[in-house]
Amino acid sequence: MFLIAIYAASGFFVLLVLLLFASLVKGSWPALAAFGAKFLWTSEWNPVTEQFGALPLIFGTVVSSTIAIVLAGLVGILAAAYLAEFAPRWLARPLSFVIELLAAVPSVVFGLWGLFVLAPFVRVALAPSLQHAFGFLPIFSGPISTGTNMLTAGLILALMILPTVTAISREVIVAIAQDLREASMSLGATKWETVSRVVIPAARVGIFGAIVLALGRAIGETIATTMVIGNKPVIAASLFAPSYTLASVIANEFTEANGDVYIGALLELGLLLFLVSFIVNGLARLLLFTVLKGDRA
């Protein structure tokens, strides 16, 4: 009896996930039928004429996530190296805890802070100085009319995924065999040489897994992005221009959408997010599984 109950619960769980996929496909069917694959590479998003192309949204999602992953990847891996290898024991534990608490901050609070503190800072200080120094690059040229733009969204996302990169990379680095460190040190390498040229290269598969996992978070993040990205479906080279992401469009327009095609198009964006995160998380699991032996992955 008891066994049947726990079997049933597991079966129910599997059914639930399959139902999730099926209902998103069913709901987006009107849009799938109307636009087909064209949905992915046309760039007109116009509810009035019922023309829906997701290209500007895909662009905004990809670019903002890329900014986030580059920044959080660099800082997160080095932070993980410090926590796992260099930090004294009394400092490593509380510091890890504080960084993990950053992951617990609700996204609406990140958005609030981003909107009222980070965005004005980007507009009056960060963006002008970047333009002054690197204005010859297309990504740092163009007018700085608002603080809610691609750069601000990328920065907020970087901050939000930093704990993911740091915590998982730290676990991966800790799991590297002690022999390697000892062998390297006994050959006369300094601590830094050991970490940067032996330990981190040995952990690279798992670290890559951590980055892929964090990428999934950045792609799907909704509320904070919506509050700071400016919400305009345009494709601009400049990072100082407003943009829009897949998730933000759903958040802004879903409750006001009417008509099967419009709702279907928004549900299709949700389906796209589902499929992308399915692939990304599957990949991350594969990469981390071998390293952490399934503890976490």
């Binding site: 597991s10 769980f13 599997v14 799907g220 549900l267 389906l271 997010l273 995160s277 998380n281 699991r285």
Partner: peptide, 26 residues
């Protein structure tokens, strides 16, 4: 059980907005 674990890991990475859409649809 492997399938359950896999789906659970995947579900934990699905954006909450997509899950919200699912709840809306059903």
């Amino acid at each position: 059980p492997e399938a359950v674990r896999f789906l659970s890991d995947v579900l934990s990475g699905i954006p909450s907005i997509a899950i919200g859409l699912f709840a809306y649809v059903v």
